[in-house]
Amino acid sequence: MTTTSRSVISSGAERAGRRWSRRLAVLLLPLAVALPPGTADAEYADVVLNRLSEAADMAPVIFPHWFHRVRFRCKVCHSDSELGFKMRVGANPMDMQRLQEGEYCGACHNGQIAWGLENCELCHSGKMGLPTHIKGGHETSGPGRW
């Protein structure tokens, strides 16, 4: 494989090292394809919100898109005329104060349309240490896997 002049002038140890790293790469390549990071267990489009939660000793919020999508069309939450959520995780500057004033999640989660904000643990239900992100991309897809 490496029969170039570079390998001739390199030391035996270097050559052995390269050989092993190449073998390791060949071994690990199928693993990398077979086991993409963050496997397919969570539902597609689940959102983890942990910009403020953990710093305030609360579990991160898990927002299930699927649950809300069964009940509301996208535009209800994602149009300026109603809730105004920007379609980018982390782009919405919400905090509990704003929720209590009826903004963002607080427009529904007020004990009238959906459960009130006093039910902390129903939203703050994620594992500590999860970064803010959305479960998506190729990770949760079906046969069309990259």
């Binding site: 539902e43 689940d46 699927w66 902390c120 129903l122 594992k127």
Partner: peptide, 26 residues
């Protein structure tokens, strides 16, 4: 997957077991 096993929810938190399961709907 049940929420308690989905890798995001913490099964030790009581709220997780009160939520609707995705399999029951989807």
């Amino acid at each position: 997957k049940p929420l308690a096993e989905d890798g995001l929810h913490d099964p030790d938190l009581p709220g997780v077991h009160m939520l609707q399961e995705p399999g029951d709907v989807l």
